[in-house]
């Protein structure tokens, strides 16, 4: 599903955010991306979305060589990816339902499909009763669940979550990770970057650890910290 082959990413500032990254993530996998701040986790996720392009090596996502993808083909790639952010990025002047519907509306989904799919996504994350509320009236955990609904409403092949629990209390963080795990159970590939050891250690999924832009560990049922 996602294949990095000798990938290096150097920003125009000269910072080498990733070096010699080779890794394969198969369809249906659930992967934690861990590592200290500045180790390249966000860059890894941005390369998958073609927000950044690799300076060396190849990034292949769902069969597309992202580094060589023409700009006009980028939207088509991104429609196959659902994204969740640490800071939610919900539109404050729109209701929960409108925020979720937004992802469908702007990608040209048939309007008659939008209502049922928004309903389905909100039910999946348990936010259907709050459909008509504005984001400001929700707790952080609830806002992140709406984000998750927006990420899955387009039925993506892959969900990418960049520190989705960074702004949440432990209980809300746990709910989000459980939801991600449930979405993964339906066959969606899930890739989560995190700083939260507890979540990683409870779930025991594949862990890829980055340090200074290199993969220093890749374990099938890993913990947050390497075991020696």
């Amino acid at each position: 599903m996602i294949h990095f082959d000798g990938v290096g990413k150097r920003y125009p500032t000269g910072v080498a955010a990733l070096s010699q990254v080779t890794v394969r993530i198969d369809p249906g996998e659930f992967v934690f991306l861990v590592g200290p701040t500045g180790s390249g986790k966000s860059t890894f996720l941005k390369l998958i979305q073609a927000i950044e392009r690799p300076t060396t090596g190849r990034v292949v996502v769902d069969g597309d060589d992202v580094g060589a993808l023409p700009a006009a083909a980028v939207p088509r790639l991104r429609r196959r990816l659902g994204v969740v952010f640490q800071e939610f990025k919900l539109l404050p002047d729109r209701t929960v339902a409108d925020n979720v519907a937004f992802a469908l509306r702007v990608t040209g989904t048939d309007p008659v499909e939008i209502g049922p799919r928004v309903q389905w996504a909100l039910e999946t994350v348990g936010m259907a009763p709050r459909a008509d509320d504005l984001p400001a009236r929700l707790s952080g955990g609830e806002q992140q669940r709406v984000c998750l609904a927006r990420a899955i409403v387009t039925r993506p092949r892959v969900v990418l979550a960049d520190e989705p629990t960074g702004n949440l209390d432990p209980e809300a963080a746990w709910e989000i990770v459980q939801l991600l795990a449930r979405i993964n159970l339906r066959g969606t590939t899930v890739l989560v970057s995190t700083h939260n050891p507890t979540l990683v250690d409870i779930l025991r999924r594949r862990v890829i650890e980055l340090c200074a832009g290199r993969i220093v560990r890749d374990e099938a049922r890993g913990l947050y910290q390497a075991t020696r």
Binding site: Q49, I51, A71, A72, V74, P75, R76, L77, R78, R79, R80, L81, V83, K89, L91, F102, A103, V106, T107, G108, R150, T154
Partner: peptide, 17 residues
């Protein structure tokens, strides 16, 4: 800006934005 950013991230075509 935020709206446009999200549009781009979820794969809205440039024409739509």
């Amino acid at each position: 800006r935020q709206e446009i950013e999200i549009m781009a991230l979820v794969g809205a075509s440039p024409g739509f934005v």
